[in-house]
């Protein structure tokens, strides 16, 4: 009986892990509550006013500029009323967010916490 119980427990554990294994769940949480209303749940945005994140140049080749842009915000060049607001994220939130977006819509390259911390120091 105990043997069966162990197998069932193991089975449930495997199911649980495979279901909860979306990359960077912390980054997803930050994205959902701060970015989703403009860039949309699927990252498609409403371009050109609300840019799509799919293969965005910032995710693909300008990854090092991204931390400061997210922290400082950015004004639309098309309509000055449209402004991505500044965000008060800490280094861990920012790292998780960028990695979440990159796995979903970029080149899947990861940014390291120490690199984000270095970038944050050089903002502005």
């Amino acid at each position: 009986m105990i043997k069966y119980l162990n197998i069932i427990t193991l089975y449930i554990l495997i199911i649980y892990i495979s279901c909860a294994s979306e990359s960077f769940p912390g980054g997803k949480r930050v994205y959902t509550s701060n970015c989703e209303s403009c860039h949309m749940e699927d990252g498609s945005g409403l371009p050109p006013m609300y840019p799509s994140l799919h293969n965005s140049t910032y995710l693909n080749s300008n990854l090092k500029e991204l931390p400061c842009i997210i922290l400082n915000g950015k004004q639309s060049q098309l309509i000055k009323n449209i402004i991505m607001p500044a965000h008060d994220f800490n280094d861990v939130e920012l790292t998780n967010l960028i990695n979440y977006m990159n796995v979903k819509w970029g080149t899947n390259q990861n940014i390291l916490l120490k690199d984000v911390q270095k970038n944050m120091k050089n903002c502005k």
Binding site: S37, C38, M40, I83
Partner: peptide, 17 residues
């Protein structure tokens, strides 16, 4: 809506499109 709306407007606009 309003263009400087940082909350729900872009989502609604996408659905209007």
């Amino acid at each position: 809506f309003f263009t400087s709306c940082p909350s729900i407007c872009p989502k609604v606009m996408k659905q209007m499109v």
